[in-house]
Computed example of a mutant assay.
Amino acid sequence: MTVRLLIVDDHPVVRDGLRGMFTGDPGFEVVGEAGDGGEALALAASLRPDVVLMDLRMPGMDGVTAIGRLARSGSPAKVLVLTTYDTDADVLPAIEAGATGYLLKDAPREDLVRAVRAAARGESVLAPSVAGRLMGRLRAPAEEPLSQRELEVLTLVARGSSNREAASRLFISEATVKTHLLHVYAKLGVNDRAAAVAVAYDRGLLTPGGR
């Protein structure tokens, strides 16, 4: 599947670099570029990208506002934040607004490409420092156990279910599945679903053929 990509950043040189990176890969099609959140919303509505690479701090409408409005508009596009900042004031509002993943601009090319593919599948990918921040916010002084619902979501993920399939099986929304997974990542100290499953097996939270 070719991933249709919309690049949103207020710096033309950053947009040029990202466009060049993805244009050379046959698995991606850069369908448009925007310099702020307002332009991004208009283009997302007309171009219907699979993934929006979204900067956060932009003049005019910022990234968090745009992410929230995109989610409320019913757009199927997944938003992958790509920013310089990993402070709580940036990370938490972006994820709460509906971002699927959060990477920093110093991420290696292969990590960015993998994250965009994951976002297109509805999977969450977090920069290691971001996962650490969420873990710090969500973890109690002692190791916090996974809730029953978090274990149920992780069990389905371990069996190969997508976020959408897990949502359908558990009669909850995809957004709720994503929230549970972000909590799982934070509690287990990981930044993607494969690592979460591996750590859960390692700790005996999941067992082959069962939970």
Rank of each mutant, 00 (worst) to 15 (best):
K105Q: 06
V184Q: 02
A131C: 03
D192A: 08
V157D: 07
E165D: 13
R117V: 01
L53M: 11
Y185D: 11
A186V: 03
D106R: 12
E152T: 06
S147D: 12
P128I: 04
R19H: 14
A200H: 08
A107Q: 07
T179L: 11
R109H: 09
V64E: 10
A166S: 15
R149E: 15
A77F: 06
S162Y: 12
H183K: 15
A66L: 02
N191M: 09
R109S: 10
F28L: 13
R133S: 02
L43I: 06
H11G: 10
A115L: 09
L138M: 15
R164A: 15
V91K: 12
E144T: 15
G98K: 06
E29M: 03
R4M: 01
D192N: 13
A34T: 03
V130D: 10
M61L: 13
G122F: 12
V116T: 05
E123K: 10
H183L: 10
V116N: 04
L92T: 10
G68R: 15
P108C: 07
P141E: 08
P128K: 04
A158T: 10
P59Y: 02
G68C: 05
L82D: 06
T179C: 02
I67N: 02
S161G: 10
L47S: 04
A166R: 11
V30Q: 05
D192F: 06
R149K: 11
A44E: 07
P208E: 11
P141S: 08
L151H: 07
M61Y: 06
L43P: 11
L206N: 01
E96T: 00
L103R: 07
L82C: 03
L154M: 12
L82W: 08
A120W: 04
A200D: 06
F22D: 00
A115Q: 06
L80N: 01
